[in-house]
């Protein structure tokens, strides 16, 4: 029994290639996808289009950064789509009342606050984060509808939307913020006490407790980060669209989870990083962009993504089976 448990904890006997594959299979997927679309469409491998891919990826990407933090803890946050919509609505709706930047700040604060609330409820009650954030998903979406009066809000001063047009070469402000945040949080994960503790908490919570890590505070911080990042995505969306639809970001939480899992971060916790998440987000975005360039109908995109996810899961399963032997 012990020997078996031990075996699954150690990958020492694996060949280097398998070990590498286990951690980085997403980049192979991405490379294949890019290669295929480059052949299939002359428009794909242009600087302009790749910039577009990044911009399109950025919204789910920013949500995915927070989700990765939470998932490394072995938790999940289903409320990010609704939080995004709320920050989006607040940033636009409050502009006329308190000015642009205070409104943006309010949106950010709301996101962080809701994340803090989710995290606090989870650690205080001991409830499954799935249940708590499922409740929050419904409630926050309700809040959005109540706040917007079920209508789309419009910005009054259209100079607000010009922020979205800022770009650095082919990279839009949105894409830059996504990449910057991803790198920043990878740095957090790799180099700071909080980041390293995240793995310990997600993988071996007893060892973390024995070592005196404050697990409750740790998890609350990560849920707060997740909420705040959802708000950032919502604010960037408001700049890009200039409107706040109450249905904005609907089921994006599911796409976010798909992107993170596709990257290789495990739902069980203790495993993953931002590189994987960037890989997962980009792969999804490349698939979506490439299929659109090829003028494939919407449904192909949805079906390919579903099939792709199951394929990735089967691959992961296959490799871990080999690992157990």
């Amino acid at each position: 029994m012990t020997a078996m448990l031990g075996a699954s904890r150690s990958s020492a006997h694996l060949p280097r290639v398998t070990n590498w594959l286990l951690r980085n299979h997403i980049w192979i997927f991405l490379a294949i996808a890019i290669a295929l679309f480059s052949f299939a469409s002359p428009f794909f491998l242009t600087l302009n289009n790749l910039g577009n891919v990044l911009t399109q990826a950025a919204f789910i990407g920013i949500l995915a950064i927070g989700m990765t933090m939470v998932m490394i803890n072995g938790e999940i946050d289903l409320s990010v789509g609704a939080t995004l919509a709320l920050a989006n609505a607040l940033a636009i709706g409050l502009q006329g009342v308190i000015g642009v930047w205070p409104a943006v700040f309010c949106g950010l604060l709301a996101g962080a606050g809701l994340g803090f609330l989710n995290g606090s409820i989870i650690v205080l009650s001991g409830m499954h984060s799935f249940v708590v954030t499922l409740g929050a998903l419904i409630g926050i979406r309700g809040l959005v509808f109540v706040y917007t009066g079920e209508n789309a809000l419009m910005v009054e001063d259209f100079s607000y939307t010009e922020y979205a047009d800022i770009s650095w070469g082919p990279l839009s402000l949105t894409a830059l913020i996504f990449l910057g945040l991803a790198l920043f949080f990878q740095w957090i994960l790799a180099w700071t006490r909080h980041g390293r503790e995240a793995y310990s908490v997600g993988d071996n919570i007893n060892a973390a407790f024995d070592a005196g890590i404050n697990i409750k505070r740790h998890k609350i911080i990560n849920f707060t980060i997740c909420g705040a990042l959802a708000a950032v995505a919502g604010i960037l969306l408001s700049m890009r669209l200039g409107t706040a639809e109450p249905n904005a970001g609907k089921i994006w939480e599911l796409w976010t989870i798909i992107a993170v899992v596709l990257g290789g971060t495990r739902l069980q916790g203790g495993f993953g990083n931002m590189w994987m998440t960037i890989g997962g987000v980009l792969t999804l975005a490349v698939l979506r962009n490439g299929l659109r360039l090829l003028n494939t109908p919407n449904y192909v995109e949805l079906m390919v993504m579903g099939a792709f996810l199951i394929l990735a899961l089967l691959l992961d399963r296959f490799i871990s089976l080999r690992m157990a032997k």
Partner: peptide
């Protein structure tokens, strides 16, 4: 994850 993938796949199948 499987049922999430199915969620996407069936949406596509519906449109198809």
């Amino acid at each position: 994850i499987v049922t999430l993938a199915m969620l996407s796949f069936l949406q596509g199948l519906t449109l198809l």
